[in-house]
Design a protein around this nucleic acid. Structure first.
Lengths: 413, 413
DNA sequence: ATTTGATTTGTGGATTTTCACAAATGGGAG
DNA sequence: CTCCCATTTGTGAAAATCCACAAATCAAAT
């Protein structure tokens, strides 16, 4: 096969689309070239009938998510990433993928992209492997160029993303303009959400999800930060915002499932939080900080906010830290709770725990008694004692609310 | 009576006690000299049997409060303040006051003090009036001297008082030393309380109360500010603090009664607030600011904190202003309450009011229904709707508490 | 050892809450 | 006008709460 040397030399200076056409002609089959992120770069244009997967890829300028997921699951990418030779892939009808052959375009250890050859007109055999190897080699320079441009743009995007989150922007129109030049599609309403974990490189696991339309993301240490959008706002009514909130929840559901699949033993080491929805892009700072607060609260009150991901759902935990700081600055301590606590200490009783349980069930004596494993009359006696010792009435909503808050505040150091 | 001129000239340079003795000898009766604040200055020392009022005055170095109150009520002081002649006062046995004659010591319009002559050994007649007039004249210079000293000290006390409240003090011992030099008896535990009104000169009405032992007071505009103490701390247990709190309440009760007596139609124009008890005198700043906060909250939530005077009793209102500020700085609004509000607007319903009433009764459906004049099932239906529309469960103590707080927060502009 | 006082548990009955279901009301859209 | 839908009121039964009173338990003090 020494005559194969220089097979694609004649298009050395041509467009990468010409390369695709040239390979297609040699193999007599439809060709697709993608970059490392599975974005479409070029495709042969013979108008052949093609399969669903290729069609979607060309139309969406990107390989569909379910196809990617499937190929990862089947280990195809693992092969492509580790070997220099073409990989022959059987048809996967469920995802609309016909039989094909793929090869990674690589320089050294780095994978720059892929060439896909669908087996439509004739089978692709071992004899064609060398053709594909040469094609991959011929694509390298062009992908490198492209990657250079992409990397620069990626860098600028990254900077823009952090400007958005840290709120260094001057005006809304300035943001929109800049986004345009960076080919970023900003869509309102949106919100900022964060996935927090002790794993680095988490984005690799979640790649298919992150690559979705309408997600703009970045990372900071072990945190993945995302701008999530539901699609453009229908000017119907405010329900769209709720839609966005439930979209965030279902997104976390998907992420969570994927993570559980990958790390079956440690679902609890991942944490998710998101801020309130925004209309304008100058608000992203707020939403980001809200998401951060959610994560902070989750670290401080793991049990209490276990099922809460959204800032809007934090309830009292939204401002508990603020309150704590203020109390500290005023060196305030609730005298009554202290009294009750020292009573407990002196008399080996559990009145404080009783009180908290009572308040945690919004005053349902039945539930409280059950949860404490005591007789209901014991509870009623204790509640009477608590009222006596603290000198308050548990029927007073003001005192009751205050006590509830201060009980929770006590858990902060 | 021209020979009476110079009656007391021989003791011109003597002690004021000599003057009292000289008058006593002339009138053959016990004499007492007081300053304008009814503090004892001098008394004749013949060891005569005397009445309860004089005995208490000498022992306490000050006229007892109930005697003062009675004399004000009977118009005796009004006479003394307006006329230069002696006033003959019948016995008032209920307050232990025997029959006596009094004259004001005055320079121009200003009253510097009083001379009291009890009618014990012989009646005091109109013939003695000139003696008393001369005695009063003879006392002027001595009282002026005394007043001069007192005024200077009063000024320094005033400064010290505000240093205490504004917290400019370096150390606890420095405070105690300074208090000592100013003849101020600081006693712990104590607290700072404030009477607020739209009346100026309120201290005149409350003079007897303010002149009590253990009250150190000052004024700022229409506010009377007081350091209140229960007496020295018995090192028994923490109950002393509660004692101080209830002392503050009973003090307000007395003040309130007195004010109601004087201004029967406008009890509501007076307001009272006090901070938490202090042990150290460096804490007075805190207690003062707490008292101020109570008054501020009372202006903002007149109904809600109507019966609350103590900072420790404020409940959620203790930090509601802080929260409001924080919410504003975060430009936060509870989306759910807004949703409910706009539902009310669109459908002419009262769900927001229903919700608030429900929370104001700590979730007692009976009371809520009664207070809203609706059927209990109507209430239960509304509550279900509220949960649907807001997307929360009223059984969740976290959400419930948060909503309660934010409902109250809404009332701040 | 006895007493005292605080705490827990038990019993029973009046009252309140909860829930399901049905009927009446009343306003707005077709 | 009727129909539809949200709201209000009514009825009844099961469950939960509240209250008063009594008995049992237990630890600390005398």
């Amino acid at each position: 096969m020494s005559d194969a040397r220089g097979l694609f030399d004649h298009i050395k200076h041509g467009d990468i689309d010409e390369l695709a056409d040239a390979i297609g002609e040699l193999l007599q089959n439809p060709i697709t070239i993608e970059d490392a992120d599975h974005r479409l770069i070029a495709y042969s244009s013979h108008g052949d009938i093609t399969d669903q997967a290729r069609w979607s890829t060309i139309m969406g300028r990107r390989v569909p998510e379910r196809v990617l997921t499937r190929l990862w699951k089947d280990g195809v990418f693992q092969q492509l990433l580790t070997q220099a030779d073409p990989v022959h892939i059987p048809a996967k009808d469920e995802v609309g993928l016909g039989k094909r052959v793929a090869i990674a375009i690589r320089r050294g250890d780095e994978v720059l992209g892929y060439i896909w050859a669908q087996e439509l007109n004739r089978p692709i055999t071992r004899q064609d492997d060398e053709t594909l190897r040469q094609a991959a080699r011929a694509a390298v320079t062009r992908l490198l160029q492209r990657q250079g441009k992409r990397k620069a743009e990626e860098q600028r995007r990254k900077e823009f993303f952090w400007e958005l989150l840290l709120g260094n922007h001057q005006s809304e129109t300035a943001i929109l303009q800049k986004a345009e030049t960076l080919h970023l599609e900003l869509q309102a309403p949106y919100l900022v959400c964060i996935i927090d974990s002790d794993k680095s490189q988490l984005e690799q696991v979640l790649y298919p999800l992150l690559m979705r339309d309408r997600i703009i993301w970045g990372k900071d240490g072990n945190q993945l930060i995302m701008l999530l959008s539901n699609g453009p706002l229908q000017p119907k009514d405010a329900k769209d915002k709720n839609g966005l909130l439930s979209y965030a929840e279902s997104f976390w559901q998907e992420v969570s499932d994927k993570l559980y699949e990958r790390f079956p033993d440690q679902r609890e080491t991942f944490s998710f939080g998101y801020g309130r929805p925004c209309q304008a892009f100058m608000e992203s700072r707020r939403s980001y900080q809200e998401a951060m607060l959610v994560l902070q609260v989750k670290r401080l009150f793991p049990k209490e906010v276990e099922k809460i991901n959204g800032y809007h759902d934090l309830g009292i935990y939204r401002f508990l830290l603020t309150l704590k700081k203020w109390n500290n600055s005023e060196s305030y301590q609730n005298e009554r709770l202290r009294t009750l606590e020292s009573y407990d200490r002196d008399n080996q009783t559990n009145l404080l725990e009783t009180l908290e349980t009572f308040l945690d069930t919004t005053g349902k004596v039945n539930q409280t008694a059950q949860s404490l494993h005591i007789h209901i009359n014991t509870l009623s006696y204790r509640l009477r004692r608590i009222e006596e010792i603290m000198g308050i009435s548990l029927d007073d909503p003001n005192q009751r609310t205050a006590i509830y808050l201060e009980l929770k505040l006590r858990k902060l150091i």
